[in-house]
Amino acid sequence: MNLNLDTKIILISGATGGIGEGICQAFLEEKAMIVPLFRGHSERLNPLFTWMENHGISKDMCQPENFDLKDKSKSKKLVQSVLEKHGKIDILVNCAGKSMEKPFLLHEDEDFNEMLDLNFTSLAVLTREVLRPMMKQRSGSIINISSLLSHRFGRGVTAYAAAKAGVDRLTESLASEMGKKGIRINSICPGVIETKMSNALTFNLGDQLMERTPLGRYGKPEDIAQACLFLASEKTASFITGQRFVVDGGISLL
């Protein structure tokens, strides 16, 4: 099925992470042009460029920008720069995130700030800046990568879970503000996905969690990426906004 994403410009945060890279690949396969965000050295995106080369995708389809999401005051400049270079932003995928595993009583004040700052505030600020040009275009789709922990489980990850719950509420309330301007906003709540972030968890629990998952496996970045394409495309999701999409192999049914 042609998702009509081939003329789209996609801004993706957290592109150097496991899920982010999967999302980049999925959009590239749909012939969209991606603007992945990375921080530090651009070599961080080498695996993606190698993948592109192996799949015969031109380097021009990937136009990275160096941006640390904690530099919130520079978000406006980033968006301006993307607009100057590419003329528009059709889709924003907020995928950057960081979790923290520790009992609640051991959290330092700074830990709360850190969890909220990256997982919620920087996402909200970047979203605000991207929304301005999207409002002018009268179209756009924003996809927030939240977590199943935003509304289920959460023992030992309270601050992270609370920040992700904020992302889901932001998604819902913003969707009702922006619908009139033709902009859709949804969140995806992954269960356990095999990336660096879930390494410790899957290692500690061995096969326990996998065996309890109705679909009998952990998720892969592609599972999230495909849900992302679905929500991004006007062909498949033009009447869907303000929703929370759980992609978890059924573990939340437990």
Binding site: R132, P133, M135, K136, E177, M178, K180, K181
Partner: peptide, 13 residues
């Protein structure tokens, strides 16, 4: 107020 943001953004640009 959302239209207002839109109008201001247009004038800012």
């Amino acid at each position: 107020s959302i239209d207002m943001v839109d109008i201001l953004y247009t004038l800012e640009s």
